[in-house]
Simulated scan of single mutants.
Amino acid sequence: MTDTTALPPQAQMMQFLTAKWVSPTLGVLAELGVADALADGPRTADDLAKQVKAHPRSLYRLLRAAASVGVFAEDDGGRFALTPLADCLRSDVPGSMRGAVRLFNAEPMWAPYGRLMHSALTGEPAFDDLYGMDIYAYLAQNPAVEKVFLDTTVEFYASAAPAIAAAYDFGRFGTVMDLGGGVGYLLASILERSPSARGILFERPSVLAQAEPVVADRGLEARIELLEGDFFASVPATADAYVIKSCVHNFRDDQALALLRVIRRATRPDTPLLIVDAVVPPGNGPHYSKFDDVEMLAVAGGIDRTEQEWRELVTAGGFELRQIVECTPMAYLLEAWPVS
């Protein structure tokens, strides 16, 4: 790909503007399952179109565009093949990002950007202005989109879980409760590294139903308790450490503060809260969290926070932030201990 810093400013700006063309192109190819159809070897667009039920010439044009940025590759015979980037679009490989590509290009996720000015002027999510409800109410009413959302969450949890479990000593706690822990990938990874620990997965009933096979597949049925609940209402005071991953950034400050105070009521002086989330770095350098924060602004209504903003939030919630551990470039563990 072109090194944009070597281009004139106008050319760099044009590359930024045309970046919007790439994501929906990949989204269509992911939705059609083209990468899966190429798993057995190169094929022409005409051949692929028959399998994925697409218009042949249109599919060729999408594939050619994707190949120009390294996703797929076309040979002299007009056949397209997988590349390492295209492998990310397969549904049957470790580290698959097909769900994420589909979610990022689902209409409810990109349409709010047409009203981003609303968020800039009001501080309110463009999503709510567009659909008349927040993202969570929308997902509850649209099961097909919710499934893609949950599948993407599972992908992110599964890929990051081992690194998070390895980055911190969870083994010193007898019982670890994962609040809003999805289908249990992170909690399972923690327990696999801490054989004497037990876990509690605290989630909504619909999510716990999907967690059961994950827990069973990892052979952890005897060590993980599945517990229904709403962490905005109450949290059981039955753990030696509480983990909450990729949740707090979904909420604006007043909501996040209310959540931390609910958790604080459940903690003892020797019971930490371990927040796994993004931390926005200082300076002008590029970082995932800086545009994820715009996503929070436009769609979810939440905030990706700097270290100072995290410190202020956890202090107001009744905790002291003692350390921040980088687990992955996108996930940091914030160790917060209760204070009187």
Rank of each mutant, 00 (worst) to 15 (best):
T4L: 15
T5L: 14
T5E: 14
A11Q: 14
M14W: 05
L17D: 00
T18W: 01
T25N: 14
G27L: 12
V28H: 06
A30G: 11
L32N: 12
G33P: 03
L38A: 11
D40E: 15
D40K: 13
G41K: 13
D47I: 05
A49Y: 01
K53L: 08
L59Y: 02
L63T: 05
L63F: 02
R64F: 02
A73W: 00
D76A: 14
G78I: 09
A81E: 10
C88N: 04
L89Y: 03
S91Q: 09
M97N: 10
M97Y: 06
V101T: 13
V101K: 04
F104A: 15
M117W: 10
L130F: 08
Y138K: 08
P143Q: 13
A144T: 14
E146N: 15
V148I: 15
F149Y: 15
L150D: 13
F156R: 12
Y157M: 13
A160V: 09
A160W: 02
I164L: 15
R172I: 14
G174V: 07
T175C: 13
G181Q: 05
I190F: 08
A197Q: 05
I200N: 01
L201Y: 01
F202T: 01
V207G: 00
A211M: 06
A222E: 14
R223H: 06
I224M: 09
I224C: 07
F231D: 02
F232I: 05
T238P: 00
V243M: 04
S246R: 07
A256S: 05
L257Y: 03
V262T: 13
V262W: 00
R268F: 00
P269W: 07
L273K: 03
L273G: 02
I275E: 02
V276A: 13
G285Q: 14
E295R: 01
E295G: 10
M296S: 05
A300P: 00
G302I: 08
T306Y: 10
Q308S: 13
R311I: 01
E312W: 03
G317T: 08
G317Y: 06
V325S: 03
L334Y: 07
W337K: 04
